[in-house]
């Protein structure tokens, strides 16, 4: 799901768009080089200053072990991006391979992949991810795989359809006539031409994947403590709702700002590369 910028805002200078790119750049910076932004190590405890509100020393306050919330939010960027984008990339790669295989392989294989996709689509929303985590157990990698699994069916469908279109196109027919091997045709022509629409679709699912990742962490199924994952930090902060509001506000704000930025930037990329706004739904 994504939101489209308004029709009128699609031309000219758009401060909101620039803001979104800026936020995303900051998040990526925090993910790649957190110590540049953070003021404290994320797991350094300070037993003298537990559960304090924002102050100049601790911009977002501290948690129950006196850890600096701002620094933990900064270090958390990496986990949100790793899980959200990791799951999306996983779904994209696996989806592209299965989709192309389905479109070009034997009919039986196409049928098998198609029905398997039907079955995966029968687990609504997060449920497939939850089932996968239940089997694999909690953890960052397992959460990534789980969300990847629940995102993959859409990519398979799209890739299959795209591969069918490409196969019927002139240059592929030409390659067949020229006597190129099927493997070469698929590697050189079908796959590369099926991928761009998948990338567009990935900009649509990335935001959802980030939210799903932090939701799994919130439920205690993400990376293990003391990893500063945003959803997990929010879950910990719930115990102090009437004493320390900051613990329940900043990690959530981080998720929302990141996902808004990803969605806005995604819509902008779609507009640039497709020439028309993709249907986000």
């Amino acid at each position: 799901m994504t939101a489209e910028p308004t029709a009128r805002a699609r031309s000219g200078f758009r401060p909101a768009l620039w803001l979104a790119y800026l936020v995303l750049a900051l998040v990526v910076l925090a993910a790649v080089w957190p110590s540049l932004v953070a003021t404290h190590p994320p797991d350094a405890i300070d037993l003298g200053a537990p559960v304090a509100g924002p102050s100049p020393a601790h911009l977002f306050g501290t948690d129950v072990l006196g850890r600096d919330t701002f620094s933990r939010v900064v270090h958390g960027a990496r986990w949100s991006l790793v899980i959200g984008l990791g799951a999306t990339s996983l779904a994209l790669v696996v989806g592209a391979l299965l989709g192309v295989l389905s479109a070009s392989g034997p009919r039986l294989l196409d049928e098998a992949i198609g029905r398997a996709t039907d079955i995966l689509l029968a687990f609504p929303g997060l449920l497939l991810a939850l089932l996968v985590v239940a089997v694999l157990g909690p953890g960052a990698l397992n959460a990534t795989i789980a969300i990847g699994c629940s995102t993959v069916p859409g990519f398979v469908r799209l890739a299959r359809g795209q591969a069918l279109v490409v196969r019927e196109s002139g240059y592929v027919r030409a390659a067949v006539v020229l006597g190129h091997s099927p493997a070469r045709i698929h590697a050189r022509h079908v796959l590369p031409n099926a991928v761009p629409p998948l990338l567009v679709f990935a900009t649509v699912t990335a935001g959802t994947a980030i939210i799903s990742g932090s939701a799994l962490s919130f439920l205690g199924l993400g990376p293990k403590a003391p990893t500063p994952e945003w959803g997990a930090m929010l879950a910990d902060g719930r115990d102090f709702l009437d004493t320390a509001w900051a613990l329940a506000v900043f990690p959530g704000l981080a998720v929302t700002a990141t996902v808004v930025a990803v969605n806005v930037v995604g819509a902008d990329l779609r507009r640039r590369f497709e020439g028309s706004p993709a249907d986000g739904n």
Binding site: L234, R238, L241, G252, V255, V260, V262, N263, V264
Partner: peptide, 17 residues
């Protein structure tokens, strides 16, 4: 856009708080 991009658990925590 904000409604779609906000995780429901955070909305819940904020409303509760």
């Amino acid at each position: 856009l904000v409604a779609i991009s906000t995780p429901s658990f955070w909305i819940g925590v904020l409303l509760l708080s």
